[in-house]
Design a protein around this nucleic acid. Structure first.
Lengths: 205, 205
DNA sequence: AAGGATAAACAACAGGGTGTTCATTTTTAG
DNA sequence: CTAAAAATGAACACCCTGTTGTTTATCCTT
């Protein structure tokens, strides 16, 4: 990588914006360096002065998103104020962080996103969550805990994709409540089933 | 596509096997026609005699998997024997079908799989499921139903990926029970939480 | 079994993207 | 203002692509 020159920073910004733009339309593998440089309005040689290839570029951007993500999460996961961090607040914090990084989310988790990155995201939370489950559900088998995590982590990303596809019009809290509700109660989240109906108090609009 | 000649069928078999083989190692976009032909042991020109490009090849294979899938599902979804098709049996049938098509599943849903195909799979069940939900959960909003489906369909695919990564050692029924359990009860699937413990009857080994 | 038809193998081609190098111009920083 | 750093444009050999034309092998029919 080149230095912290004013021009260097601008060039890298142009490159990143071009990639974000192009990843809205097609997968990385269908994007050529030449194409990206035309969109960015820079010389092709200049690209190679900054990055080895398109994959290195995406990796850098994903890495920064990952840092943001972990940083935004750390206060929520700290041991110091266990009274403050209710499950819902943690979930809401996660979705808020995702909303703040909407562009990168689209890039990495949208239709032309990077499956490997999604897997990485999931893995970050895995141990912590499974350990946490294990403390509360002492009778569940390790296998059950792992499968539960596999399901709900993928489910959350599916939810996020849906949210993205709708332009993230709902608030982070709202989506977090949905995720929370499903993870906690399954279909129970949808309210009383027909036939077992009662004077319903539910949480929809 | 060429005719049904004996040689043609063998050639196509070789091509398909080569693609399946290569997709274990890298995404389609990183595979060249040249490479595939070397693996398949055929001439590069011969490939173009059968397929337009690698994407057409994959599409054909995915299409066949999709047909298998819908065919395996149709008896489960028919209206004729509604007493036979309990939710668990349907779910088990789905996972059994996925297990029968393990190779294609790895190809399309594994680490180097095709996000678009997963999305297509999800969309197939969407309307049917949401309509079905709507009948049972008359008080839930459309948005809740859609978000619930987005979550659990993605969750099921996440579960499938986990299952695949473990070589599908568990039975289809077992995985179906897990999926069913989570979808129905959320964390409740994991048994009684600590603090609210009672003489537990759970379903693990 | 012979012969016409079909498909595969082979070779050659232009076209386009890659990654690198070099000389040149522009911009930044001291 | 000057020297260093960065961007540019052009050129390059390389590899993959997709196509075409020719030759060889295999098939199906008679």
């Amino acid at each position: 990588m080149r230095g912290t020159d004013h021009r260097s920073r601008i060039t890298r910004l142009l490159i990143r914006r071009a990639l974000t733009e192009l990843l809205r339309q097609k997968p990385l593998q269908s994007i050529t360096v030449k194409e990206l440089c035309e969109v960015a309005g820079i010389n092709r040689g200049t690209f190679y002065a900054h990055y080895i290839d398109l994959y290195a570029l995406r990796e850098e951007m994903e890495g920064e998103m990952l840092q943001d993500f972990q940083q935004a999460l750390s206060p929520l996961l700290e041991e110091e104020q266990p009274d403050e961090r209710t499950p819902l607040k943690i979930t809401a914090g996660i979705f808020q962080c995702l909303k703040d990084n909407a562009e990168v989310c689209t890039m990495t988790l949208g239709p032309y996103g990077d499956k490997a990155f999604a897997a990485k995201l999931i893995n970050i939370g895995r141990e912590k969550c499974v350990d946490s489950y294990r403390r509360y559900f002492t009778n569940a088998s390790r296998k059950q805990l792992e499968y539960y995590y596999a399901f709900v982590s993928a489910g959350c990303i599916g939810l996020l994709e849906k949210w993205l596809s709708e332009g993230m019009t709902s608030s982070a809290e709202e989506v977090a409540e949905i995720a929370q509700g499903i993870m906690m109660s399954g279909v129970g989240f949808l309210g009383q089933a027909k036939g077992a109906e009662r004077s319903g108090d539910r949480e929809d609009a």
